[in-house]
């Protein structure tokens, strides 16, 4: 055998061993690849789906939920209503920091049970300052604590949203009624929006969410509370699957103090209009120019 062919044979042998090692290294991907379907892979962006394509997609999600969680759910795609501009206000004088809004959000929006996720974080602040520097999130014990007040923070549905600007694939946008949404089937999970948001309003699905079947909320929206896939962003949508059908957000219904006011800015008789016209409201981090649709005010 000539030197050349011996070398070639050795190289082929080495390449075979290398390819085998490579296959072994990639073995964990087998289960993952089995969960991917061509239909999902090729699915277009929300805004490019025809009515029929959207119907098919909604049925597919329902079937997948049944297969994976054993629960029959109803996934709809409610669209923005004409002449509606949603806004939210929160009375800091009334809020007692009980976190029932955060819990209601957790249940309504089919959040991951393992991480106890919620779109709402309630900050405990010392009376005398609005600075978030000394805010405490993991407070415990009796509420309201003496000398403190509470500030729940969720997505402010900004009119100038930095999260939407930074998204490289237009997976997040502002709807006609002012709600900032995410197409969970288009998001690539780069988390640039999470870095851009000044209000810690966005969350990432670090793994597939786990929820006991009996706790799954079957009333679901494509852009809101359907069970999110792993590896994508999620955020508060003012419960659009409820509010676009004339109901109130879950966090508002859960509030025992009546601190929360939600409504249509274009309706002159709405509570939200009354608050904005009669209370001295403020927004968080106004200097950043994000123009939130979430207002805070004190009664006294």
């Amino acid at each position: 055998m000539s030197d050349f062919t011996r070398r070639a044979a050795l190289k082929v042998a080495a390449a075979t061993v290398g390819a085998g090692a490579c296959a072994r290294a990639l073995a964990p991907l087998q289960g993952w690849a089995a969960t991917l379907t061509l239909e999902e892979f090729l699915q277009r962006h929300y805004k490019e789906l025809s009515r029929e394509q959207m119907e098919r997609t909604l049925r597919r999600i329902e079937e997948q939920t049944l297969a994976q969680h054993g629960v029959q759910v109803d996934v709809a795609d409610p669209r923005p209503l004409p002449d509606v501009q949603f806004a939210y206000a929160l009375n800091l004088s009334l809020c007692i920091g009980c976190r029932r809004c955060a819990e209601a959000c957790h249940e309504e929006n089919n959040h991951d049970r393992a991480t106890n996720n919620s779109y709402i974080r309630v900050l405990q602040l010392k009376k005398g300052s609005l600075s978030l520097d000394h805010a405490v999130v993991d407070y415990a014990g009796e509420v309201p604590a003496e000398g403190h007040f509470y500030m729940p923070v969720q997505c402010h549905q900004c009119d100038n949203p930095p999260c939407v600007d930074v998204c490289p694939v237009e997976a997040t946008w502002k709807e006609a009624d002012g709600i900032v949404v995410i197409d969970y089937d288009w998001c690539i999970g780069c988390r640039y929006c999470e870095a851009a948001c000044p209000y810690h309003a966005r969350r990432f699905n670090w793994s597939a969410p786990t929820i006991p079947p009996e706790e799954i909320n079957p009333d679901q929206g494509y852009l809101s509370n359907r069970i999110r896939p792993a590896g994508v962003m999620e955020k508060c949508t003012f419960c659009l699957h409820r509010t676009r059908e004339g109901r109130l957000p879950a966090c508002l219904e859960a509030c025992p103090t009546g601190s929360r006011v939600f409504g249509n800015l274009l309706d002159p008789d709405s509570d939200i209009r009354w608050v904005l016209e009669n209370k001295r409201v403020f927004v968080l981090k106004e200097d950043l120019g994000t123009q939130p649709r979430f207002f805070y005010f004190f009664d006294k």
């Binding site: 991917l36 892979f41 962006h45 600007d165 930074v166 998204c167 490289p168 694939v169 237009e170 997976a171 288009w186 998001c187 690539i188 999970g189 780069c190 988390r191 640039y192 990432f204 699905n205 896939p229 792993a230 590896g231 994508v232 962003m233």
Partner: peptide, 29 residues
Amino acid sequence: VNVDLGRLDRAWHMLPIVGRFNWPVSMLT
């Protein structure tokens, strides 16, 4: 950047024309 993506299978969404390329607004594009 690719190992940092939550959905590497959707990386094609970032391609101009076939995906939706948020250029020039997004610095990532």
